[in-house]
Design a binder for these strands. Structure first.
Length: 288
DNA sequence: ATCCAGGATAGCG
DNA sequence: CGCTATCATGGA
């Protein structure tokens, strides 16, 4: 497969693919092998040039969100110290545009799991139930569509180390495959209406719904509040105020971080998660 | 061995 | 609304 190229400024491929928003890309040669939708793709970055094969330039641009107004987004971030450090550490991360089902299903399996484990679960589900894609010396598996997962037995999902998440994934796959929700129709809905539709699905609460809204539906103001973001907010923006409720965190975050709050959240999440150690290690992002 | 992980949910006050 | 127990599994 021949390599094509695209200009890519303010972009970091490795950080984008390893920042906990997508979980299936595999290191290969000097880049990464994976899937964009149903197609096998290879991506490799050299400075401000992105090399790719297997898919067309348009789909790469859309998937990696190279068309986002990144300078405008960065300018919208608040100017406090924690945000500045996160913006520097996470520089180049894009909020990518994932296929809706793949994103929804993957985050359904993410509940109370480490990023490393979510990746393992994702790769296992792909290799057991997804279509095997080959090209040149590349190989990857597409994420199985709802119809495929709706037809598997619960025990097969439990074998993928899903634990209590298995029933949620199976039930949701059956609802989607049966037409109980139209994931593509959500694209034209206002964010709050789309959120209300998503949380009807078993295993999907507000946090996972916000992940799907942010990573698949281009709602860049959606803020998933997970344990890391909650800890970060408590340690930085609510410092010394004891225990803060999720409701209060939500209200503050959407107000303080603005229209690109989801982007700010992702930069903070990645920085916090990658640099946080135990307190007695004195190497938290604040003290460095 | 103990705590924790990109949570959701039902039950309770 | 806010708090708590429960869910299943493996990493740190």
């Amino acid at each position: 497969m021949s390599l094509h190229s695209l200009p890519a400024s303010h972009f970091n491929l490795e950080k984008t693919l390893n920042s906990g928003q997508v979980f299936h890309w595999m290191p290969h040669n000097s880049g990464f092998a994976g899937t964009i939708g149903e197609k096998l793709a290879y991506l490799e970055q050299h400075g401000e040039t992105l090399l790719f094969s297997g898919v067309d330039a348009n789909s790469v641009t859309r998937y990696l969100a190279l068309d986002h107004p990144i300078e405008q987004i960065l300018d919208s971030f608040p100017g406090d110290t924690a945000m500045k450090r996160a913006a520097e550490y996470s520089a180049g991360i894009r909020i990518i545009r994932q296929p809706a089902w793949e994103c929804l299903a993957t985050f359904l399996t993410s509940a109370v799991k480490q990023v490393f484990q979510i990746r393992g679960i994702s790769l296992t589900i792909r290799s057991r139930f997804g279509q095997r894609l080959r090209g040149g010396n590349l190989c990857a598996f597409a994420y199985p569509n709802p119809e495929i997962l709706a037809a598997v037995r619960l025990e097969q999902l439990i074998e993928c180390k899903l634990g209590f998440r298995a029933q949620n994934l199976l039930s949701t796959a059956r609802i989607v495959a049966g037409g109980g929700i139209d994931l593509e129709a959500l694209r034209i809905l206002p964010t709050e209406e789309a959120r209300q539709a998503l949380v009807q699905l078993p295993g999907v609460g507000e946090k996972i719904a916000n992940c799907v809204l942010l990573f698949a539906y281009e709602r860049l103001d959606a803020i998933p509040i997970d344990v890391w973001i909650a800890r970060m907010l408590s340690d930085v923006y609510f410092k010394g105020r004891g225990k803060i409720s999720i409701t209060e965190m939500k209200a503050f975050a959407s107000m303080y971080f603005g229209v690109y709050a989801g982007y700010a959240q992702q930069y903070l999440f990645h920085h916090w998660r990658m640099t946080y150690r135990k307190k007695d290690d004195r190497s938290s992002p604040l003290s460095k």
